[in-house]
Design a protein around this nucleic acid. Structure first.
Lengths: 162, 162
DNA sequence: TAAATTCCTACTAAAAAAGTAGGATTTCAG
DNA sequence: CTGAAATCCTACTTTTTTAGTAGGAATTTA
C-alpha cells in the first residue's frame, strides 16, 4: 500500500497533547468544584472530565511538581490549586506540560535552540515571521489566566441554562 | 533511572517538524536561486540549505503533489515554483506538510475533529481561547506569502552586506 | 485499624519523525 | 543513440514521543 494513501486518517500532529489538554481541564475542574475550599480527588476529576484515572494521576503529579496544584493525602484528600487562579497563566501550564509554544526552537523564549539549517538567524526570513507568530500567540496565552478561563466557563454555562 | 531525570534533553515536541522547515527553506531557495527562470536541482537545494538529499527528495515530492512546485527531469532539470510566489501562503504550506495549525482539533478549520472530553464546545472555555489563538496565528500565516518571505530575506541579506 | 487517598516505579503498545537504500524512469547534450 | 544527470518510486529502519496500564507503597483521617 502506498504511503500516501492514508486518506481517511486524521493528522493530529503538532497540536497540544492529550496530556496538556487533560491538565488544563483538570485545573478548570479543580477551580470550579472546590468552592468551599476542600480538595478535589483525582477520581472525581477523572470521572467529571472523562479522563483515565491512572493517566490523570501522572498528570496531576506533574502539575504538583510545577506548583500549579497542592495535594492532600488520605480520606477527604485530593488536589487544590497551588496558586491563585489569576496567577496561573495558560502559557505557563502549556510550557510545563507540553513544551515550547514557539513553532521553531530558534525563536523560543524558554526552550531556545539554535537553528540547524540557517547559519545566521538575523538573515532568515522564517526566523522573522516565526517570531511574529510567537508574539501573537503569547499575547493571548500569557495574558489569559485560569481565572479568566473559569469566568468564561461559568458565563457560558449560565447562557445555556437561561 | 527516574523518568523525570531527562534534565538535559531539549523538548522539541509540538513544533514544526524538520520536514516542514526544510520544505519552507526549499521554497525560499528555489525562488531566490531561479532568477533566470531555470529550474533548481534537488542536490543544489540540499547542498545550499544543508538538508539530506534523499530526505529532501521526499519533501519535494510532497510539495509537487500539492502544486507548490513543478519539476523537470533530465539534465538541467530540477524544480520551479508551481504558482506565483504571492499565491503561496505560508499557512497552506504548513497545512500540507505539517498538518493543522490550530492547537486543538476542535478549533481547526481544515482538520476539524470533535473534542473527546468536552461534550459541548460552546460551553468549553478552552475551546474559546484556542479559537482566539488560532485566529491570531492565521492572521499572520494566511497573509504572509512566499513573496513576502523572499522580500524579507533579500532585505536582510542587503543589510548585512552594507 | 481500615478505607480512601496520594505517591512511586516500571512497563507496554502504537504512532510519528527523520531519515536511508536502491534502483526505475525520463530527458537532453554530444 | 548513448550516457550522464536528474526526477520518480517503493520499501525499510531507527529513534522518539505519546498515551496509556499495572501494581503496589505510603499516608491520613474517621
Amino acid at each position: 500500500m502506498h504511503y500516501n494513501s492514508n486518506f481517511f486518517f486524521t493528522i493530529f500532529a503538532r497540536m497540544l497533547t492529550m496530556r496538556t489538554r487533560y491538565a488544563l481541564r483538570a485545573l478548570i475542574h479543580i477551580s470550579i468544584e472546590s468552592k468551599d475550599g476542600g480538595p478535589v480527588s483525582a477520581s472525581a476529576i477523572a470521572e467529571g472530565q472523562g479522563i483515565s484515572f491512572k493517566f490523570l494521576e501522572a498528570i496531576l503529579h506533574d502539575l504538583k511538581e510545577a506548583g500549579f496544584v497542592v495535594s492532600k493525602k488520605g480520606i477527604g484528600g485530593g488536589y487544590l490549586l497551588g496558586k491563585m487562579p489569576d496567577a496561573i497563566r495558560l502559557a505557563d501550564v502549556i510550557r510545563t506540560i507540553n513544551g515550547p509554544i514557539a513553532l521553531v526552537p530558534c525563536v523560543s523564549l524558554n526552550f531556545y535552540e539554535p537553528c540547524s539549517i540557517c547559519p545566521d538567524e538575523s538573515k532568515c526570513a522564517l526566523h522573522h515571521i516565526m517570531t511574529e507568530v510567537r508574539d501573537a500567540t503569547l499575547a493571548i496565552l500569557e495574558t489569559t489566566s485560569l481565572s479568566d478561563l473559569i469566568h468564561r466557563e461559568k458565563k457560558l454555562l449560565k447562557r445555556k441554562i437561561k
